[in-house]
Design a protein around this nucleic acid. Structure first.
Lengths: 223, 223
DNA sequence: TGTTCAACTTGAACACGTTCAACAAAGGAG
DNA sequence: CTCCTTTGTTGAACGTGTTCAAGTTGAACA
């Protein structure tokens, strides 16, 4: 709220007003006019700082991503198994995002547009994506006993994709306090641990090789 | 175009005009006023038949779904393996949807909103969802040799989820003629066939049971 | 034929996100 | 001080999706 320059103060006031109104009424029901009025600012002025209503939300996401990175080491401390570490990681994400779930729909609707800079696959969000994969790296590297070398290299990125899938589910989750998503993670994380543990099983070998080369090929085509 | 009643003709004219304009200009650049004018109809009249711009797309989607169902038996005829049948099914879908890929982004952005009737998981699209799962039923039941009984019952719905995932990828696919998506299917379909063939493997048994009960539990929570 | 009524059609009006030309304040440079 | 540039601010206006009260049509019935 108390930025040094005049512009920083105005910008913070707009974000604060938007966050309060989004949480109170939801994304769609909150108008830009209401945000501007609540921030004590003209409508046009809000657009001086944020090119669109969507861009207002990007700030929240960045904020919580930073906090996620800061608090992750603490919740991983002393946790050994892959399933438990993965669950701890996602539970922390749920905890941080829970207050924003009501209007997350409005946010992720536009994130689903690959042309939008908000898309997790867009070039614009590459830094955020790399940071998120680095967090998965942290999850994987601390596993005891260590994961099989067969899948070690690709695992963080695959788990990030898994995370994106869970987020997609979370957005759709209308159960109380997103209990269904928590159930999903609590059940699928052990499955992932089990499959990863079986990575050296001869019968699965061909499939794993195929999956890794497919990922490589697809990324090459997307480039 | 030549429905029996006056209403059917008008409705068809609106869909035709919308489809033509969407293909020509894209989803966002096409206004409801332009659609109405092109259909030789008033603006309000378009809203008599379609509650929203999104719902217009649903009408068009239903059309291609019907055509998909009609042509599927032909492309499955004489094809035995699960991977080949699955690939044939999806290739037909790609063929039907290819002309609409340019504006599919605008379509699926709103479909990503679970509150939208366009969401494949919404109650409003339950009939379309059931029909799509029925097509997968067709794919599965014709497999020679038959798939293991262990996974037989759940497989069509799981494959439908796979289809939805492929569609998500397809929407994001910016490679020429969506070649990356075709590669994805060509590579993952055999993996699915292989994993399904291994469904009776003792090491995978627990995971498969977990997956099926999880699906049941999640659907119960969603209800 | 005349009456009725549901199906159909209309265009003005509303609220919204967004844009824009115009203006004000702040801060140097001379 | 005056002038100039950058930064910040304004509210009217535009085009959009959507709604609605009011009208029209046409087939079934008396």
């Amino acid at each position: 709220m108390t930025g040094r320059t005049r512009g920083e103060q105005t910008k913070a006031a707009i974000i604060d007003a938007a966050l309060a109104l989004f949480t109170e009424r939801g994304f769609d029901a909150t108008t830009m006019r209401a945000i501007a009025e609540s921030a004590g600012v003209s409508l046009g002025n809000a657009y001086y700082y944020f090119r669109s209503k969507d861009e207002l939300v990007q700030g929240f996401y960045d904020r919580t991503a930073v906090e996620h990175g800061e608090r992750l080491p603490a919740v991983l401390d002393g946790v050994d198994g892959l399933a438990d570490r993965l669950t701890a990681h996602l539970d922390l994400w749920f905890e941080l995002m829970a207050p924003q779930h009501p209007f997350a729909v409005g946010f992720f609707r536009n994130a689903a547009d690959p042309a939008s800079p908000l898309s997790p696959f867009s070039a614009a969000s590459a830094p955020a994506r790399m940071a998120a994969i680095a967090l998965m790296e942290l999850v994987v590297e601390g596993v005891v006993p260590a994961v099989p070398a067969t899948v070690r290299a690709q695992l963080p990125e695959v788990l990030w994709l898994y995370h994106m899938g869970v987020v997609l589910f979370w957005v759709h989750d209308r159960s109380a306090e997103q209990a269904a998503t928590r159930l999903l993670v609590r059940r699928t994380a052990p499955m992932i641990e089990r499959v990863v543990a079986l990575a050296d099983l001869p019968a699965l070998q061909a499939t794993i090789v195929d999956l890794t080369t497919l990922l490589t090929d697809l990324k090459a085509m997307a480039g």
